[in-house]
């Protein structure tokens, strides 16, 4: 039911872990099935995401979409990161089964929550 890409990101997830001195951390939960995803961001002065890590408690799709989302925002600006959609993450994984689309939403929301946390901690930062 899962694409090879999903299985690849599930079995060899990229950027797993924590960033102890992260500039932004976002934790989101899935009301639907009870899964949890946490994203850590390191952001440089020019607003570029230089490092990103995740931890996820959830299904194969949740882990794979977390992994893919970190790859998609790494090296991007905060503004670009905010534009990440769950559909884009799912597409980058060659699609997800319909019942698993909500897991990719978790990845989108986790990135957004981490960026928002960064903005809260860095009110001087502007996203344009």
């Amino acid at each position: 039911m899962y694409s090879d890409k999903v299985l690849d990101h599930f079995s060899n997830p990229r950027n797993v872990g924590e960033i102890p001195d992260a500039d932004g951390v976002g934790t989101v939960g899935n009301a639907k099935c009870g899964d949890i995803m946490r994203m850590y961001l390191k952001v440089d002065d020019s607003g570029i995401i230089t490092d990103v890590k995740f931890k996820t408690f959830g299904c194969g799709a949740a882990i794979a979409t977390s992994s893919m989302a970190t790859e998609m925002v790494k090296g991007k600006t905060l503004k670009e990161a905010l534009k990440l959609t769950n559909a884009a993450v799912a597409e980058a994984l060659d699609g997800l089964p319909p019942v698993k689309m909500h897991c990719s939403l978790l990845a989108e929301e986790a990135v957004k929550a981490a960026v928002e946390d960064y903005m809260k901690k860095h009110p001087e930062a502007v996203i344009d």
């Binding site: 899962y2 299985l7 599930f10 079995s11 408690f57 959830g58 299904c59 194969g60 949740a62 882990i63």
Partner: peptide, 14 residues
């Protein structure tokens, strides 16, 4: 505890 069943199943399957 702290892990999800489908992820366990997939890893077992692999």
């Amino acid at each position: 505890r702290f892990v999800e069943g489908e992820a366990l199943l997939l890893r077992l399957d692999l």
